[in-house]
Design a protein around this nucleic acid. Structure first.
Lengths: 228, 228
DNA sequence: TTGTATACCAGACATATGTCTGGTATGGTT
DNA sequence: AACCATACCAGACATATGTCTGGTATACAA
């Protein structure tokens, strides 16, 4: 009978396998065997099948390293939203936003910013980040160098802070429309008396999205470079 | 010669492999072959070896699914905190900071904030987050409701923004010491003309740490409750 | 005591998977 | 034209890896 108590080793095996899976390197049966000093591969396999019946793992028979975490991206061939943490999504930090072709501007990728998953709810492909230039929004606590996370194409309400494309240039401003603003035009208000309100016909302004998060790093940090 | 241009297919292969690796499910050569419709396994392998020589992938010869991303956790048997992503650490958001006993104040836990791992370099246990109250730092772009991430006990240099304990109350201010400031005392400067500079003997002020990140959520977000 | 489920062991086996040898076709360069 | 590097193809091969059969020992329950 068991040299160890029922379930004891199993829990350790589970921890080990999960750790490896999260780290992106699924273990083989023989790796598990070696890790725990089993003299037989079968022991490792029995633990895994046990974990499968407990619902803690999924199994794709016959495939190498075929045990995965249920519900994780590895289960399905989910193309998007690769398994990062449970709590994070990466959104691209775009260095420069060009006229119209925001999609193609991805080539100007500076890096990736981790955003809380609950913030990125829904389609995280609709998010991107921008580094703020200029001091036009200091009154709203948005300083040069800050990073704003933007939900693309979000229906912006008057009074919200948006990223807008005006004269082929992306700018962060507070949107005003409707109300006192003449029909058919929009106003983009800076939060700094040294700057002037931009008034344009609505169709001369492309709203790229609205700012949902502002972030500032006071120490130099390393950008995340890879992680499509 | 190539049916496609040099490097074209290769870039796609790289994207695919990286996607799979990040998703925690390393592909086999034959899976890559199938994905791209290669008639020969060798084609897939050549692309991968090419990517290895380009430094974009690492390879462990002989092992199944033995291609990994350089520098990622999967390379080493890094003991990552399970269920966290490669890029994030969770730091506690403390609701209230009490005199002296910051450690015990963890009971006042509001939730957890994901912080970029490179920011939390070193011991991430030295980090905590606070929600800012009051408008004393609006000039530095820190508004009420903002969340500041603090490195505890960090040696703060004059001019940096710190969290200090004064009269049993935690406050966020810009630190001034040395220079014109009399020896043995420190000044805590607000960044708002409506507030006054706090001047105290150095030993009446406990520096809890320095602010390394400022964050603001413009939409309501759900706090992370458990940090597993 | 008897039985049963669990943990472990030993070895064989089939298939999944990486690796090798050798060859063809085409864009670009000299 | 001759040459070269790249992309691709075909098939064989060796190893890595999951699976199966059969067996032993111990805790726990009936």
């Amino acid at each position: 009978m068991p040299r160890t108590r029922p379930g004891e080793t199993r829990a350790d095996v589970y921890r080990f396998v999960r750790e490896r899976l999260v780290a992106g390197r699924p273990p083989t049966l023989r790796e598990i065997q070696a890790e725990f000093g089993f003299r037989a591969v079968e022991t490792a396999r029995e633990h895994l099948t046990g974990l499968v019946t407990e619902g803690k793992l999924l199994h794709e028979p016959g495939r190498s390293r075929g045990y995965t975490l249920p519900g994780s991206a590895s289960t399905q061939a989910m193309k998007l939203v690769p398994l990062l943490g449970l709590h994070e999504r990466l959104v691209p930090l775009l260095g420069r936003v060009q006229a119209g072709a925001l999609v193609t501007a991805v080539e100007e990728l500076e890096g990736w910013i981790p955003v809380q998953a609950s913030v990125a709810r829904g389609n995280s492909e609709d998010l991107f980040a921008l580094r703020v230039r200029g001091e036009s929004m200091t009154g709203a606590g948005i300083l040069p160098g800050d990073i704003v996370v933007v939900r693309r194409g979000a229906a912006a309400v008057s009074g919200e802070i948006v990223v807008a494309l005006v004269d082929d240039e992306a700018t962060v401003k507070r949107l005003r429309k409707g109300g006192r603003v003449p029909r058919g035009s929009v106003e983009l208000h800076p939060e700094n008396p040294a700057f002037e309100v931009i008034v344009r016909p609505a169709r001369a302004v492309t709203l790229l999205g609205k700012v949902i998060e502002v972030r500032r790093y006071l120490e130099t940090t390393q950008l995340i470079k890879t992680a499509e």
